[in-house]
Design a protein around this nucleic acid. Structure first.
Lengths: 227, 227
DNA sequence: GGCGGGCCCATACCAACGTATGGCCGGGCG
DNA sequence: CGCCCGGCCATACGTTGGTATGGGCCCGCC
C-alpha cells in the first residue's frame, strides 16, 4: 500500500474538509495532560484506531466527530467540568457513545456514579496498555451494536413520521391485536375505511406481516417511553 | 392491631416451619462483623424490612430465603470467598437478586468489577443510614420489576413446555409471520393440519391474538438466547 | 384388549383480511 | 378554477384464518 501524505489516516486525497467516508472506528481522547494525550493517541493509532484528542471537554462537545462506531476515553478530573458532567451532557444531547473513564486519583463514590451513569469501563492509572485497548475494543463493539439498533429504529421512526394521523391510530390498534371491526368501532369508522388506512400504513412502513408490525410498533413504543 | 408473640414479623401464628406467606420484602445482610450485622439489621427492621443476617457467604448460599422481593447487602471482603465470588455464584445458580456492596477498604478495580457484574450500588463505609436505606429501596424496586417479568416469563415457559413438538414448530412459523399455507409447506403438512396445531397451541398458551403470540414468542426467544 | 393422545387429513362453513373500483366531501395549491 | 390529497364509505371478490365434524394411523398404558 502506498504511503499517504503524512498522517496515517485512511482518507481519500479528495476533499479534506470533513471526514467524508471517515475512518472505520474512532476514539475520542480527552485529557488535560498533553503527555497523556500524546501517549494514548500513539497507542491507539498503533493498533489502527482513528483518534481525536481534546484538552478540554468543552472542545469535544463542540466538535463534531465522524459518524462511525467509536468511544470516548477521558479522565474523570478535567478542567471546567468533570468527566461525569461531560457524560451527563452527552447523554442529554442524545449522544450515546460509550464512555471509558481513566483516572489517577478517583474515589469509589465517583466510580459508582460513573458506572451507574452507564460508563462501560473505568481504568485506574497506571494501567497497562492492553487494558485500555481491551476496554476500547469492547466499547466500540458496544457502540457498533447500539448503532445497528439505532439505525433500524431511525428508519422506523422516519416511516412512522410519514404516516397520517389515522394511519397511526390504526397501526396502534393492530399492534394491540384488535380486529379491523374493533378498531373501526373505537375510531368511529367503517370497517372498510380501517382496511384502507391499514393497507396504506403497511405500505408506507414497509411491513408485510402482522408479526413485523407488532415488532416495529413495540420498538417504536419502547423507544418512545425510554426517552 | 393486636401485638404478636414477640418479633415484629408479619407471620400468622399457624405453622412456623418455613416462611409461608413470608414477609413482604426481605434484605439479606452478610458481614463477618457481628456489630455491623446487628446495627444493619436494626436499621433495616426499623423501617419495616424483614432481615436475615449471615456471617459467612456460604451460609447465605445454603439457606433458602422466602420467595419475596428483596436484595442482598454484603461486604466485599468476606471470609472464605469474596463478595464478588458470591455475586458470581448467585448468578450461576440463577438467583438474580440485586446485590448492594458495602466496604471499608475497597479499591476502584474491585468496584468496577462489581458494578460490571451487575451490582446495583456500592457503598463505602462509613455511610449514612439514609444512603443504605435508599440503596435498599431502589434495589428492592428493581427486584420487584425483575420478579414481575420473571413470573410472566415463567408462565410462558411452562405453557410452552406443555406444547407438542409440532405445536412448537407451528408457533415458530406464526411468529415469523408465515401464512398457514407456508408453514404447511415447510413442515410437509396439509394446511388444515397446521390450523389444528395452531388452534391447539393458542389454547394451551392462553393466547388470543397474533400480536400476543408474537410478543410471547419473542420473550421466549430472547430468554432462550440470553441463557 | 380397550383407551387416550399425538399426528395426520378431508369437507364444510363462517368470519376476518386484503384489494380493487367507484363515489362523496373538504381543503390546499398552482 | 381545476387538481390532488386526505378522509370517508359502499359493493364486490378472492384469500386466509378459525372451527367443527369425521375419519385413519400409531403408540403407550391400564
Amino acid at each position: 500500500m502506498p504511503q499517504r501524505t503524512g498522517r496515517n489516516m485512511t482518507a481519500p486525497p479528495s476533499t479534506a474538509r470533513r471526514a467524508d467516508p471517515g475512518p472505520r472506528e474512532i476514539v475520542i481522547v480527552i485529557d488535560d495532560d498533553a503527555m497523556v494525550r500524546g501517549a494514548t493517541e500513539t497507542l491507539l493509532r498503533s493498533v489502527g484506531f482513528a483518534v481525536l484528542t481534546f484538552e478540554r471537554p468543552q472542545d469535544a462537545l463542540e466538535a463534531d466527530w465522524p459518524d462511525v462506531p467509536g468511544c470516548i476515553v477521558l479522565d474523570i478530573r478535567l478542567p471546567q467540568f468533570s468527566g461525569l458532567d461531560l457524560q451527563r451532557r452527552l447523554a442529554e444531547s442524545g449522544t450515546a457513545t460509550p464512555v471509558i473513564f481513566m483516572t489517577g486519583h478517583g474515589d469509589i463514590p465517583m466510580t459508582v456514579t460513573a458506572m451507574k451513569a452507564g460508563a462501560v469501563d473505568f481504568l485506574t492509572k497506571p494501567y497497562r496498555d492492553q487494558d485500555l485497548l481491551d476496554a476500547v475494543s469492547r466499547a466500540i463493539e458496544t457502540d457498533r451494536n447500539r448503532r445497528a439498533e439505532g439505525a433500524a429504529l431511525a428508519g422506523l421512526r422516519e416511516a412512522h413520521a410519514g404516516l397520517t394521523q389515522r394511519e397511526r391510530e390504526v397501526l396502534e390498534g393492530v399492534a394491540r391485536g384488535l380486529l379491523n371491526k374493533q378498531i373501526a368501532g373505537e375510531l368511529g369508522l367503517a370497517e372498510i375505511t380501517v382496511k384502507l388506512h391499514r393497507s396504506s400504513m403497511m405500505k408506507k412502513m414497509g411491513l408485510r406481516t402482522v408479526a413485523e408490525l407488532v415488532r416495529a410498533a413495540d420498538l417504536l413504543a419502547s423507544a418512545q417511553t425510554r426517552v
